[in-house]
Simulated scan of single mutants.
Amino acid sequence: MTEGNFVDYIKIHAESGKGGRGSMHLHREKYIDKGGPDGGDGGRGGHVIVRGNTNMWTLYSLKFKKHFRAEHGSDGSKQRSTGSDGKDVYIDVPLGTIIRDGETQEILFEITKENTEQQLLPGGKGGRGNWHFKSSTNQTPRYAQPGVEGQEGWFQLELKVLADVGLVGFPNAGKSTLLSVLTSAKPKIADYAFTTLKPNLGIVEYRDFQTFVMADIPGIIEGAAEGKGLGHRFLRHIERNSTLLFLIPADSDDIKTEYGILLNELKKHNPELLDKDRLLAISKSDMLDDELKEEIQQDLPKGIKTLFISSVAQQGMMELKDTLWKMLNT
C-alpha cells in the first residue's frame, strides 16, 4: 500500500553483468616469433546485491527506480592479464524487507539486520583465456571461452514494519491518539474509519533513558484476513512485533466479542501470531467511574492482562509503559 512517502510493496527488475571474454592472444616480441598463448581471462560480471539500510523506513526510493543493471566484466588481454570485474549494483532496503521471486512468489530471503548483504543475482563468470588450453599436442590454441551471460528477472519486495509493540484494534479504537501521546510520532487523527492508511512508528521513552518502538497498525475489520477492507497489507506488519497491544474503546458494545474477532483475524492470517505476548487496553476509560469499570471487568476476556487507560486524559500511561517494558524484557 502507498500513502504519501510510505511504500511497503514494490516490484523491480534486476540484471547481473555478463562475464568478459577470454583472450586468444599469442605472445609476440622481438626475436620471438612464436611465443605461445598468453591470452588472459575475462572478468566476472557485476552482482546484484540487496543491502539492509537502517536509515530507510520505507521502499519509497525504489518507486522511481525499478530497473537495476550491473556492469559487464571486461575482456581478457595479452600477457595473461585478467579483465576487470563488472561493478556490482546495490539495492538498499529498510530492515524488515522480504524479497520474493516475481513469478513464483517464493520467498528468496529477508533483510532484518543492519548492513546485511544478500546476493540477488550473481554476475556471469569470465571466460578463460587461451593459455589455459595449451597442451603437449596443442601448443598454440587459437580459441578461448566466451563469458557466461548474466541473469535477470522480476522481484517483489515487501516491507514488514519492525517494532517491539504492535497496536491492534478496529478503526477508531484510539490507536493513533495513544501513539501520539506515548511518542513524538504525529499520526493523522480524526473521527472516521481508516484515518490511518499507513503504519506509523514511534519511540516510547521509558525510565532511565531506555526506549522501545511502537507501531500503529491501521485498523483491522472482520474479514481482513481474506483481504476485506485494507486486508493483508496491514496484517503482515504485525508479524514482526514481539508484543501485541490490543486496544478496544470503553464504549464498545461488547469488548469480549471485539477481542475475539481481532484474535480470529490474526489467527486466520498467521496462526503463529497467537504465540506472541498480548495485552488488552481499554481506551477512553476517562468516561468510566469505578462502578462501570467493575461492571466491565466482569465480562472481560479471560487469559489476558487488561488495563484501563485514557490517552486524552493521560490516565494509566505509566502503568501501560511499565507493563509493556516488563513483557518485552521477560
Rank of each mutant, 00 (worst) to 15 (best):
G96F: 14
T97D: 02
G102Y: 03
D75F: 08
K78W: 08
I91G: 15
S77L: 09
D92A: 11
D101L: 00
R80A: 15
K87Y: 12
I98K: 06
I99H: 07
G86N: 06
P94A: 03
R100H: 14
F109S: 10
Q105W: 10
V89K: 13
D75R: 12
T104R: 10
R100K: 11
D101F: 04
Q105M: 14
T97L: 03
K78Y: 15
I91A: 12
D85V: 05
I98P: 01
K87P: 06
S74T: 11
E106K: 15
T104L: 14
T82G: 04
L95E: 09
R100T: 05
S77Y: 12
V89A: 09
E106Y: 09
L108V: 04
L108Y: 04
R100V: 02
G96C: 05
N115P: 02
L95S: 06
L108N: 04
L108I: 00
D75C: 05
N115G: 05
E110R: 14
I99L: 06
T82P: 05
T104K: 11
K78G: 15
D88T: 08
V93E: 02
K87C: 04
D88P: 09
T112H: 07
V93R: 02
D101K: 02
K87H: 14
G86D: 07
Y90S: 12
K113P: 01
K87F: 07
T82Y: 06
R100S: 03
V89C: 07
D85G: 07
I111S: 02
D101E: 11
V89Y: 03
L95D: 09
K87T: 10
G96N: 07
G86R: 01
S84H: 11
T97M: 05
